[in-house]
């Protein structure tokens, strides 16, 4: 059960340019919040900043998980507290197999939960969880022995992101354009997998440019994000309206939307 509170958050690049200019958001367990916006509006910056990317500076406001500020924490500690970011462009780690990476990540979280003592997951339990999650998300077995994201197609990378999420069981998941680069069948499987994980144990922020992923993950709230701020908020109907009318109506003057 976790509550994420974003309070008047400002995020700047290391050179001082402000990208996120004051947003407020509360994510309760089981809630799905869609953040929709044109390309270049700062959506990914927001996602990275929440996870603690060192290239972004929090120039104002706070982010709290269950009342505790995440800002002093590194990305590893945020993950250990239950935050997860599904990357838009996951990075490759040559030489490290998907399976060994998954086990290391699960063990890192278990270690943190055990107060810093090693508590490795027993291999049979790991295999069982892994097999179940892979079947659910239709991840081909051969990916397990391949090096993490190395030479993976866009769809394979996204499946592995969600597989990680399924195994790491975060309390708050931030999904950064998980739908981009997916064909319709892959989108259905992956979005379905995300939807199944949302519940009393997990709330989600779904960042997207297009409405179509929201056909499979029903959002409780939709926030339109442009030029670093929320410019409109509503429910799932707002997403459909955006799809038909575009973002232009929500953009402040002088900021072009790219459709």
């Amino acid at each position: 059960m976790a509550l994420l509170e974003i309070k008047d958050l400002h995020v700047a690049l290391n050179d001082g340019t402000e990208i996120v200019r004051g947003i407020d958001l509360i994510v309760r367990p089981g809630e799905v919040h869609a953040i929709m916006g044109p390309n270049g509006s700062g959506k990914s910056t927001l996602a990275y900043a929440l996870m603690g990317h060192p290239s972004y500076e929090i120039s104002g406001g706070d982010v709290l998980l269950d009342g505790e500020s995440l800002l002093p924490l590194g990305a590893d500690e945020r993950a250990q507290k239950g935050l997860f970011l599904a990357f838009q462009y996951p990075y490759a780690v040559p030489g490290v197999t998907v399976s060994s990476f998954l086990r290391s990540a699960m063990n890192a979280l278990r270690k943190a939960r055990a107060g810093g003592t090693d508590d490795p997951i027993p291999i049979p339990e790991f295999r069982k969880d892994l097999t179940a999650a892979m079947e659910h998300l239709k991840v081909p077995r051969e990916l397990l022995g391949r090096y993490l994201n190395d030479g993976f197609s866009g769809g394979e990378k996204k499946r592995i992101e969600i597989l990680q999420m399924a195994l790491l069981r975060p309390q708050i998941a931030v999904l950064d354009e998980t739908d981009s680069g997916l064909d319709i069948d892959a989108l259905k499987t992956i979005a379905g997998g995300i939807s199944d994980l949302v519940g009393p144990e997990m709330g989600a922020i779904v960042i997207t440019h297009y409405q179509r992923i929201l056909n499979y993950i029903h959002p409780d709230f939709v926030h339109v994000f442009a030029a670093g701020r929320f410019v409109a908020e509503g429910d799932a109907e707002l997403a459909k309206k955006l799809e038909s009318e575009g973002y232009d109506a929500y953009l402040p003057e002088g900021i072009p939307g790219d459709g």
């Binding site: 996870m51 603690g52 990317h53 060192p54 590194g74 990305a75 590893d76 945020r78 993950a79 250990q80 997860f84 970011l85 990357f87 996951p90 990075y91 490759a92 780690v93 040559p94 030489g95 490290v96 990476f101 290391s104 990540a105 890192a108 979280l109 943190a112 090096y147 990680q164 790491l168």
Partner: peptide
């Protein structure tokens, strides 16, 4: 970026660096 990616999964900076190096020599 590679470090950040691994750390976002809960690995400490030294665990993440070790993993990258072990992969390099794999």
């Amino acid at each position: 970026e590679q470090l950040f990616y691994l750390m976002s999964r809960g690995l400490s900076e030294s665990e993440a660096s070790s993993m990258i190096v072990s992969g390099f020599v794999e």
